[in-house]
Write a protein that binds this DNA or RNA. Structure first.
Length: 435
RNA sequence: GCGGUUAUAGUUCAGUGGCAGAACGCCGGUCUGUGGCACCGGAUGUCGUGGGUUCGACCCCCACUAGCCGCCCCA
């Protein structure tokens, strides 16, 4: 009776070579760019106290109210309390928690932190949407005296993101920006919006009727064509901003203009997390289908205080790494396919008695920095050639003759050239092949 | 959470109420220290899972599971 096979659970997936190479490329590029802007890496736990997300992200958001993986962590001793824990659905709350916990603001400096890691939301899987997905994000926060509230921080972050996308050669993106108001003027706007919706909501789609109750801001996001004329008549966030927020947003836009960063002001752009204030933004890409948001973010000037910390305004973003990779794959598919990723050489022992000596030679070559695929002495020579041709650029024959003479036969798969190389010259000879 | 759609060999996919198929890949041979090419041969599989209808189901029906697409949401 065969055992039933166990498969990856719904919404999770294995990333395999050669795709993982693209992931590494994306991640290392992000690290390089972030370093250039003087960011440092932070790694926070993948699970946290449930309260962190309830208070930070917002009890009423979809993420907290229906998408979190939450469980009761049982107590194992009388002294230990049971605790509700949650797999992180996003990383900003965790970073801010760490900022507070380690009193990073006490340095008086701006904290510029980036992270790369898995996040978890229990959503219906779809293209570009998984239950375990990966985000690459960064946060800039600190005491006001460090300049954390400056519009320059917003503009610098957006400029950095366009540089990252350029570095990855991602084309065809659109940057939308908006200001959703400060912690004090946003509630006023939401109230005004509720009021304005009351007489017209009956004519809108069912989703909007629900949103009008739960989260009126999301009505602005509605894509139903029939609702558009109604939405146009609703008050705009921009009109209810206080003077400071207006000036802040204008300064962000002005800095972007001077840098030549292309963007679209979108007064209907809202975010799904409660902590966002003032500047919000989103980069979208047409090739992604329904899940077209490549990355999103914004300011969260009050988040630290919501979590019991000191005043520490900040701004951050999260890139959907899965979507970034999808976009790159789509772009690569349009272009010529990439050459296969091959080892420098395939070392073919000819006979099992040569297996161990071959391992010793492979060790020598690998320690010299060469990428070597070691074959198997039980293979017939033809099989060694066939296998080597799939895995490497050249093949080293290691038979009795070579063992005796210390002179190896090296054949280049690309041009068929075969040479005899003494062991002490092998490294140089193997490295000289063009890639 | 809702709607649509799909599930057959390692992969991409045909297929018919009555013996399970192709291409590519894989393994072997022609070819015993020389690959790609060619020719010859071979193995594929609970036809997603579980029920039902039927003399008989890969095919029809139901349920479930999973993928994809859309809604929702967001990265």
């Amino acid at each position: 009776m065969a055992e039933k096979i166990i498969r990856a659970v719904r919404g999770t997936r294995d990333l395999l070579p050669p795709e993982t190479e693209l992931w590494n490329h994306v991640e290392s590029t992000a690290r390089r760019i972030f370093t250039r802007y003087n960011f440092g890496e932070i790694r926070t736990p993948i699970f946290e106290d449930t309260q962190l997300f309830a208070r930070g992200v917002g009890e009423e958001t979809d993420i907290v109210s229906k998408e979190m993986y939450t469980w009761e962590d049982r107590s194992r001793a009388q002294s230990e309390k049971a605790q509700s824990l949650t797999l992180r659905p996003e990383n900003t709350a965790g970073v801010v928690r760490a900022y507070i916990e380690h009193q990073l603001g006490e340095s008086g400096l701006l904290q510029k932190l980036y992270y790369i890691g898995p996040q978890f939301r229990r959503e219906r899987p779809q293209k570009g949407r998984y239950r375990q997905f990966f985000q690459i994000g960064a946060e800039v926060m600190g005491p006001q005296s460090a300049g954390s509230e400056s519009p320059l921080r917003d503009a610098e972050m957006l400029e950095m993101l366009t540089s990252l996308l350029d570095e990855l050669a991602i084309t065809g993106w659109t940057l939308n920006i908006n200001s959703v108001g400060s912690a004090s003027d946003r509630p006023l706007y939401v109230e005004a919006l509720r009021k304005a919706l009351q007489p017209v909501i009956g004519r809108m789609c069912v989703d909007c009727q629900r949103r009008a109750e739960t989260n009126p801001l999301r009505v602005l996001d509605c894509k139903v064509p029939e609702d558009q004329p109604v939405i146009e008549t609703l008050p705009r966030i921009a009109d209810s901003l206080d003077d400071a927020s207006k000036a802040h947003f204008a300064a962000v836009c002005a800095a972007l203009d001077i840098c030549g960063v292309p963007y679209q002001r979108n007064h209907r752009l809202v975010r799904g997390l409660d902590y966002y204030t003032r500047t919000t933004f989103e980069f979208t890409h047409g090739g992604l289908g329904a899940q077209n948001a490549l990355l999103g973010g914004g300011r969260y000037d009050g988040l630290s205080e919501m979590l019991g910390g000191p005043k520490a305004p900040g701004i951050g973003f999260a890139i959907g790494a899965d979507r970034l990779v999808l976009t790159l794959q789509a772009q690569q598919a349009e272009q010529a396919s990439l050459p296969p990723d091959l080892a420098d050489a395939y070392l073919a022992p000819m006979g099992v008695v040569l297996d161990a000596p071959a391992l010793s030679l492979a060790r020598e070559l690998r320690r010299a920095g060469l990428r070597i695929d070691l074959g198997d002495g039980s293979f017939r020579l033809k099989k060694s050639f066939e296998t080597g041709n799939k895995l490497a650029r050249q093949i080293i024959l290691f038979g009795e003759d070579e063992q005796q003479s210390g002179i190896f036969t090296v054949k280049n798969f690309a041009n068929g050239e075969q040479t005899k190389v003494a062991r002490e010259h092998l490294v140089t000879a193997l490295k000289s092949i063009e890639k």
